[in-house]
């Protein structure tokens, strides 16, 4: 296995749980990452972004006062966002299908289901490095292209023209495993 040297990348971890931050930080250090900054909530993280050039953000969903989704929206579409293109990995225990699609439709790059492991985290980072995606502004959506695969024979409805968040969301039907989440996002 030939992997990547991550030592020059800057990571921002956003989680209100200090134990989870400590865990993610320890994993990143063990993977050779040198520069890790922590923030306890979305508002704090947004402030940090003004002077910290994050290459990848790892963000929890459940936080207050500003939760993970609010934070992602601010980064992607806020007029004062320092970096609307920064890759974001959503790290959360929410693995219901409607939650996964909501995260995707808010503009996250990758979805990492808790409980986490070093391998799972590295796989998501590697995916961001290996598959840089163009950004799409369509309707109310602004974020990485949600189509990970080009299908030249696609002759279905052009969904981008009347793209809405609601259109993409099916009702939740139970919890999903990380493999199912990957299949949904990559399908």
């Amino acid at each position: 296995m030939t992997g990547y040297n991550l030592s020059r990348l800057n990571f921002l971890i956003v989680d209100d749980n200090k134990h989870m931050r400590a865990l993610v930080k320890s994993i990143l250090h063990a993977l050779g990452v040198k520069n890790v900054l922590e923030a306890a909530d979305g508002a704090d993280a947004f402030k940090e972004l003004r002077h910290f050039p994050a290459d990848i953000i790892i963000c929890d969903w459940n936080m207050s006062p500003l939760d993970g989704m609010d934070f992602v929206r601010m980064v992607r579409t806020g007029s004062d966002s320092p970096n609307p293109f920064v890759p974001i990995i959503m790290l959360t225990g929410h693995t219901e299908m409607n939650r996964v699609t909501e995260a995707r439709d808010t503009g996250v790059h990758e979805f990492l289901a808790k409980p986490i492991s070093a391998k799972k985290l590295y796989t998501r980072v590697r995916s961001i490095i290996e598959n840089p995606r163009p950004f799409v502004r369509a309707g109310i959506y602004f974020g990485p292209d949600r189509r990970r695969q080009e299908n030249p024979n696609y002759n279905g409805k052009e969904r981008r023209k009347d793209d809405t968040v609601e259109e993409q969301m099916d009702e939740a039907a139970g919890e999903m495993s990380q493999d199912e989440i990957n299949a949904l996002l990559e399908g």
Binding site: Y4, N5, L6, L31, G32
Partner: peptide, 9 residues
């Protein structure tokens, strides 16, 4: 990021 070499995952 560089692929391979010392320090690579």
């Amino acid at each position: 990021v560089e692929k391979g070499g010392p320090g690579a995952v």
